[in-house]
Amino acid sequence: QTIHNGDQTYHYDNPEEAIKVAQKLAKIYNLTVTVKGNTVQVH
């Protein structure tokens, strides 16, 4: 599972963990989380 947060990319073995982290980032920075296959984008 990969999270793209602007210019930063994070890799997680656990998809659920990746989505949790993405949602935390989204709340902190007031962003949107988009899940596309194995990629979670925060923008």
Rank of each mutant, 00 (worst) to 15 (best):
H43E: 04
Q8M: 14
K20W: 07
D7N: 09
K27G: 05
G37N: 04
E16Y: 09
Y29S: 15
K24R: 13
H4V: 09
V35G: 01
V42G: 01
A22T: 01
K24I: 15
E17Q: 11
L25P: 01
V35C: 03
A22Q: 02
K36V: 14
K24H: 12
N14Q: 03
I19P: 00
D13L: 08
N30Y: 12
H11W: 13
V42E: 01
Q8T: 13
D13G: 06
K20E: 08
A26P: 00
P15K: 07
I28R: 07
E17L: 10
A22G: 06
A26V: 08
T2R: 11
K24Y: 14
V21T: 05
T9K: 05
K24A: 12
V40G: 00
H43N: 04
V33A: 02
Y29K: 15
Q23L: 09
T39H: 04
T32V: 13
A18R: 01
K20L: 11
I19Q: 13
D13A: 13
Q23P: 01
H11N: 06
N14R: 03
G37K: 02
Y29P: 15
T34Q: 05
L25K: 01
N30G: 15
V35D: 00
G6H: 14
Y29C: 15
V33I: 08
L31W: 09
Y29T: 15
P15M: 10
L25Y: 02
E16M: 07
L25M: 05
E17C: 10
Y10C: 14
T9F: 15
T39G: 02
E17W: 08
Y10K: 03
H43T: 07
A18L: 03
V33Y: 00
T2V: 11
Q8D: 11
A26H: 06
H11L: 07
N30D: 12
T32E: 11
K24E: 10
G6R: 12
H4I: 10
V21I: 10
D7I: 14
K24T: 10
I19M: 14
Q1G: 12
V33D: 01
L31C: 14
E16C: 06
V40E: 00
Y29V: 15
I19E: 10
K27I: 07
E16D: 09
P15E: 13
Q41E: 09
K36R: 11
Q23R: 12
T9H: 07
I3E: 11
T39M: 12
V40N: 00
H11S: 08
V35W: 00
V40D: 00
V40F: 01
D7R: 08
T2L: 12
G37Y: 02
A22I: 04
V21C: 15
L31F: 08
Q41R: 12
K36W: 05
V33Q: 00
L25F: 03
G37S: 02
Q41H: 09
Q23V: 10
D7G: 09
Q23M: 09
I28T: 05
T39A: 06
N38M: 04
D13N: 10
K27E: 14
V42F: 03
I19H: 10
N5V: 13
V42A: 01
G6P: 09
G37P: 00
N5S: 12
H4Y: 07
P15A: 12
G37D: 07
Y10L: 11
G6Q: 11
A26T: 08
Y12M: 05
H4M: 08
N5L: 13
T39W: 06
A18Q: 01
L31K: 06
H4F: 09
V42R: 00
A22C: 08
E17D: 10
G6L: 11
N30R: 03
A22M: 03
K36N: 13
T32S: 09
N14V: 03
G6M: 11
K20Y: 07
N38V: 05
P15D: 06
Q8K: 13
E16S: 06
K20F: 08
N30W: 14
N5C: 15
T2N: 13
A18M: 03
Y10F: 12
V35L: 04
I19A: 11
E17I: 14
K20R: 13
A22W: 05
T2H: 14
Q1L: 11
D13Y: 04
K20G: 03
H4P: 09
N38H: 05
E16Q: 09
K36G: 03
T39S: 08
L25C: 05
E17H: 06
Q23H: 09
T34H: 05
T32P: 07
A26N: 07
T2C: 14
Q1H: 12
Y12K: 01
Y29R: 14
V40Q: 00
G6C: 15
V40H: 01
I3H: 12
N30L: 05
